[in-house]
Amino acid sequence: MPRVSVTRDGRTTLTAFDQFIVKLHSRCNLACDYCYVYELQDSGWRARPRTMPAAVRHRVVRRMTEHVRRHGLRRVRVVLHGGEPLLAGAAVIDEFATAVRRSVGAAGAHVQLAVQTNGTLLCDDMLDVLLRHDICVGVSLDGDQQAHDRHRHRRGADGGERRGSHARVAAALARLDSPRHRRLFGGLLCTVDLANPPRETYDALVAHGPPAVDFLLPHGTWDAPPTGAGGTRAPYGDWLCAAFDRWDATGRGVRVRLFESVIGLCRDGTGSSSELLGTLPAAVAVVETDGALVWADSLNAVADGASHTGTNVLSHSFDDVLALPGAPEHGIGSLCPTCRSCPLVDVCGGGLRAHRYGRGGGFANPSVYCLDLTRLIRHIHRRAAR
């Protein structure tokens, strides 16, 4: 449960971070055309170092340790991210993971280490490094070969023809699913594409034997809505409903965080909140390769610099970020009147903050996926009621 403070008008702000996203490498070896880092509004990545320098890595560990001690945290999650974090190399990952476990662990917190990767660099040697530090591995996969390779391309040499990455990812998942490395397998993350059939996409994902699957909606705003969103229909809601029905009909053999969250929030309000659902903020701090501390990457969909805080681990603590006057507010009290009066607000929480931006009103709008979230929540509620 994130540590939060709630005002009388229902606005919620964080008082501590318990998850740290650390970008060890700022570039990627794929060129996914929907990427929220490189293909949306923000261009800050261009000026940052490719690999996080040693001095910055050391300061990140020190700042996390300070934060754990100050707030008496007993559990934190540290996610290696990018770009593609495995491009940082085995030596950097080994050194950073060792330092985190030693320092943050000594401060009294249990440390869960994880990495979110495109999977193309998950060779046996890299997997052995991850195994040594018990680093949970999440892999991005968008379905079968046709679905995945529609957007997730390998960069062509010298600007040459781009090639699909599915074959490499599938081979890496086979290694990850081996008896030696199976316990590292955290799950698959799939970006929803309306061109991909939902039931077949779900089946293609679970064919790799993941313990969990999650679905990500393409980032966008009212000013630049994702294909099909923001109109009078709910195509993403229809897609997710069909995927839910397949998950339900096949016995819910893997965890699907989005669906489980809706079920719990509809039932008794105990489902986990996330950036996409619920009224509690995600207690996440993001550190770029140059040490810059930024808000959620999804704000890259809003405007160039929208995620920037003007702070850096070299000169600021994580508490300095929490104290910023421009820190995003969460909770029902921070939403527009339309959302506050909606009977589903306790479940959807207004949706992802970035998805509410536009129409000349800043973030004071329902989500551009409002109809889609409504469709999904009501569908799951009806199914659960049976």
Rank of each mutant, 00 (worst) to 15 (best):
V6H: 07
T12Y: 11
L14Q: 00
C28Q: 09
S43T: 12
T51F: 13
A54R: 12
V56Q: 09
R59D: 13
V60D: 04
R62E: 04
V76N: 06
R77Y: 15
E84N: 06
L87N: 08
G89F: 07
I93G: 06
E95T: 03
V104S: 02
V115Q: 01
H133L: 13
V137C: 06
D149A: 04
R152L: 08
R155T: 10
E161H: 04
R175C: 15
S178M: 10
L188R: 00
D193L: 06
L194C: 01
P197R: 05
T201Y: 08
H208G: 02
P210E: 14
A212H: 15
F215G: 06
L217Y: 09
H219K: 12
T221M: 12
W222S: 05
A224Y: 13
G228T: 12
P235V: 14
Y236E: 10
Y236D: 09
F244P: 01
F244T: 02
A249N: 15
R252L: 15
V262N: 00
R267K: 01
S272L: 12
L280S: 08
A285K: 06
V286K: 04
D290A: 04
D290N: 02
V294F: 01
D297L: 14
A301P: 13
A301K: 11
D304N: 04
T309Q: 00
T311H: 08
V313I: 02
A323Y: 05
G326T: 08
G333C: 10
R340F: 09
R340C: 09
S341M: 06
G349H: 03
G361A: 11
G361Y: 07
F363V: 01
V368M: 11
T374K: 15
R378A: 12
H379Q: 06
A385M: 07
